[in-house]
Design a protein around this nucleic acid. Structure first.
Length: 422
RNA sequence: GGUGAGGUGGAUGAGUGGCUGAAAUCAACGGUUUGCUAAACCGUCGUAGGGCCUUAAAGCUCUACCGAGGGUUCGAAUCCCUCCCUCACCGCCA
């Protein structure tokens, strides 16, 4: 959530930046500011009245102590009157604060200066590409055929047990998943990320903190009996580790990594895009999260991009890095880089990582702060990225490395998998 | 799931109606001193939102917050209700 102070002090800038995100309700900014004016006015009235009540109550106490009962009774009348004045103010104040908050959570994060203009994925900016597309043998097939042929994944079995989008990995397919997770985690921890195994369900406060709530309930599975949400990404539980904490400046940056399954309802997806591993309701992902000093968060973002890039390179996959345009960014992000790998048999680019700086947007919701050199609490910046999401990596590994004798794994993975070929 | 005991500032922990936004100890931070990464002493030490003042910072002042939300009362950390959580024992169980 954006900070009120930012809205008030840089109103024009906020409007201009929201336009870059193609945000339709820019008039909300003015509504919010006038509600905040209202809030200040009512707060003043409330505090003044309450101060009088408090002072008078204290006098009553002293009068009672001295046995001056009648004077105390008079004062009680005074308090009663003041309280009658107070209650409408309080009601208005509560109502204004609620309205203010309801509007404030509807404003998306401001895109950074670097965000390209645009509305659709076609407007994303290509940052760079790497690797080279493989020469596939003539009989090459897409990963869903390979998975079947090599008995690695059973999609139909997942349908039976749960439903579509819940594949069953088996045999060497299951082992490869485990190898990838292990490899990714080792790679991340070697770069200073502390490993966590967080809960796979979160409460509403956590989902709110990272921006999944309100308004995006429908994208998460919800265990209604206990009001828990299945996590759509490890970002949610991991970033919330530091919710409501005040850190020391020297503690920054905090770097965390976690493997979790991710659960996404993804209503409205269909057709070829959801074939095989392209889009699932449950998938595995290793995430990296950083809490950074505001002045260093863009350095951290670049560092994370490089980190992920090297990981993809180590898998030998052709990739490209995109800087998302205003219209394609998430609600909470200030700057996002998407990583796509080339799926040779499908002749398609598949998103495997999204690395974002949220600046203070999430931290403001979660109240993650640090004390600066003056001892004043300040919001941290939060960042995260996939390092990496498994299914599409797996799809590319299978498709791009298929040979007549099976799948030749990249050398980086061989020790984790315990073999060269599948 | 049952029964019982609890939830107070970074930690421990006192506080059962006004003198408590909160003792004390520890930790942390700043400093003094002792010829050394120890000890002693002094000081600082919750968060948020208003108002005054200021270019700003600082300062002064008010309000709210003692798990969350309601209630009783002139006055609530303290009494009552609901919920959440923790601990102990029992039950169930990988």
């Amino acid at each position: 959530m954006l900070q009120l102070a930012v809205l008030r002090n840089n109103t024009e800038l906020v409007r201009e930046r929201l336009a870059v995100k193609n945000f339709a309700e820019i008039s909300l900014v003015d509504d919010i500011i006038s509600l905040d004016d209202e809030r200040k006015k009512l707060t003043f009235q409330f505090d003044e009245t309450k101060a009088k009540i408090n002072a008078t109550s204290k006098e009553i106490g002293m009068l009672m102590g001295k046995g001056q009962k009648e004077e105390a009774e008079t004062k009680k009348k005074d308090v009663e009157n003041l309280k009658n004045n107070l209650s409408p103010i309080q009601q208005q104040l509560d109502s204004v604060e609620k309205q203010l908050n309801d509007l404030l959570v509807r404003l998306p994060n401001l895109p950074s200066e670097k965000v390209p203009l645009g509305k659709t994925p076609a407007d994303n900016e290509m940052v760079r590409t790497g690797g080279s597309k493989p020469e596939l043998p003539p009989q090459a097939v897409p990963h869903w055929d390979l998975a079947k042929k090599l008995d690695l994944i059973d999609f139909e079995l997942g349908n039976k047990i749960t439903g579509s989008g819940f594949p069953v990995y088996k045999n060497k397919g299951a082992k490869l998943q485990r190898a990838l997770i292990q490899y990714f985690l080792d790679y991340n921890t070697a770069a200073g990320y502390m490993e966590y195994m967080p809960p796979h369900m979160v409460n509403a406060a956590s989902a709110y903190g990272t921006g999944q709530l309100p308004d995006k309930e429908g994208q998460m599975y919800h265990a209604t009996e206990d009001d828990f949400y299945l996590i759509p990404t490890a970002e949610v539980p991991v970033t919330n580790i530091y919710r409501d904490e005040i850190l020391k400046e020297a503690d920054l940056p905090i770097k965390m990594t976690a493997y979790t399954p991710c659960f996404r309802r993804e209503a409205g997806s269909y057709g070829k895009d959801v074939r095989g591993l392209n889009r699932l309701h449950q998938f595995d992902k290793v995430e990296i999260v950083q809490l950074a000093h505001p002045s260093k968060s863009y350095e951290a973002l670049e560092e994370m991009v490089e980190h992920v890039e090297k990981l993809i390179q180590s898998l030998g996959l052709p990739y490209r890095i995109l800087r998302l345009c205003g219209g394609d960014m998430s609600f909470t992000s200030a700057l996002t880089y998407d990583f796509e790998v080339y799926s040779a048999a499908q002749d398609k680019w598949l998103e495997v990582s999204s690395v974002s700086n949220f600046e203070a947007f999430q931290a403001n919701r979660m109240k993650i702060r640090f004390k600066d050199e003056k001892g004043k609490p300040q919001l941290v910046h939060s960042l995260n990225g996939s390092s990496l999401a498994l299914p599409r990596i797996l799809a590319c590994l299978l498709e791009n490395n298929q040979t007549e004798n099976g799948i030749l794994l990249p050398p980086s993975l061989q020790p984790y998998f315990g073999g060269e070929m599948i």
